[in-house]
Design a protein around this nucleic acid. Structure first.
Lengths: 231, 231
DNA sequence: CGCGGCTTTGATGTTCATCAAGTAAAGTGG
DNA sequence: CCACTTTACTTGATGAACATCAAAGCCGCG
């Protein structure tokens, strides 16, 4: 479950140039010292919905999914996050408890910073707070827009949309090694597993994609984009 | 379209105690001087998707809707905002152009502040930036959760959900004077207008609500809540 | 008073979830 | 490493949910 704890080398951390651009070296040093890096294996739970928010967490490597458990006990996937898409940002400053869960889709490394330190830094340093706000705004905005996009599409449009999402946003490649099961895709786009599979098969028969298990190759991008746009 | 411009009395503005809690009187005074209040009539357009973001805008009185125009030319309603739910907050600090439109559902008063002033204040004053971030986070979080909630429900569940939203969040009353048409409700919950109306009629026949045109009275709250939860 | 948009209901066909049944793949314990 | 169990995947059949088309009444507004 919880992997080895160890200190990481913050010197080459990507956050330095973006997030901490306006924090002085001593500040970064202080945050860095309080930091814990944790290793997670594929499938491990990282954040549990309802738990208290005590750390400021970000993904250093790997891939994770954010999801909620609905009243009838099913999972609803909110987003898939790559490294440095801050996973604990959604409600971190406006809530005391997590409103969603996070688990690892691939082996992942999580960096835990001390939340109260971050809060203090934000309050003492407007530029830092502003940078953080911008980053936060960008991420939540992206997630919201995606949710709206999914909502207004029909089955085929949703499947096409999510394939393009993996190809463009997650892997930047027309060949995708799906990090999720068909069931999880269904949970992402709010459709039934069977119909996701059926749509995959249909796209395959129409020569839009090639399917080799979890590996999917987009061979007719224009068609897929048209379906995503207009169903 | 654009109403009378006039200076407002900032002394009793609600923002003073929440948003500007950590801005000194001189700062507030400065922001206040650069401010323009605008009157809008029901139906007026306030923000146009694609326009440049030049002001920091908030709703002082009235009711507005946030919406997007989809590729096939239809409206998709994102949220309905009450006074002091900041309408221009979604992408204001992470984008240069609006990604959605805003129009008035009731006669409304909008307060335009100078965006660059606000940015400067945020950068110079961490506590203010932090307060802003918190408020922003709360609002976008609420909108996102609502979108996810809508997405996972079926027709009846969505209609029940949106009625409860009006009753609880917008009017705080079991009797609602709908500020929107049936068509707009359909655009909000991503369903067809006819089926929204049909569901209204069904709820009426099942003695869950009473309908007098745009006035709706919830007479069986537990049933409506149950439908919202489990369809 | 007449026009256009909003509301309502019915009829029809499409889209979608669910059930069922079988195959493939992946994990588990001996 | 193999038998066993479980989970993931796939297709078909069926009925329920939903969009769309059509028609009529209503309402507000010029």
């Amino acid at each position: 479950m919880d992997g080895l704890l160890e200190k990481c080398s913050c010197e080459k951390c990507e956050l330095r140039s973006s997030f901490f651009a306006h924090v002085d070296p001593q500040g970064i040093e202080k945050i860095c010292r309080g930091k814990i890096e944790t290793q997670y294996k594929r499938g491990d739970n990282i954040i549990q919905e309802g738990n208290e928010i005590i750390d400021f967490i970000y993904l250093k490597s790997g891939l994770v999914k954010l999801f909620k458990i609905t009243d009838d006990g099913r999972e609803q996937i909110i987003n898939i996050a790559k490294p440095f898409d801050f996973v604990s940002l959604l409600s971190i400053f406006s809530d005391t408890h997590y409103k969603y869960s996070v688990s690892a889709l691939e082996d992942s490394v999580i960096c835990n910073l001390v939340l109260s330190d971050m809060k203090k830094f934000a309050e003492d340093n407007g530029k830092f707070a502003f940078d953080m706000m911008q980053k936060m705004s960008k991420i939540t905005d992206k997630i919201l827009v995606q949710s709206l996009e999914i909502r207004r599409r029909n089955l085929k449009g949703r499947v096409a949309f999510i394939l393009l999402y993996f190809a463009n946003d997650i892997y930047d490649n027309l060949t995708i090694d799906l990090p999720v099961s068909r069931k999880e895709i269904a949970e992402y786009i709010s459709m039934s597993t069977e119909n996701v599979i059926r749509t995959f098969s249909e796209f395959r028969d129409d020569k839009i994609i090639k399917i080799y298990g979890k590996n999917i190759e987009i061979i007719d991008l224009p068609s897929l984009e048209r379906i995503s746009k207009f169903g």
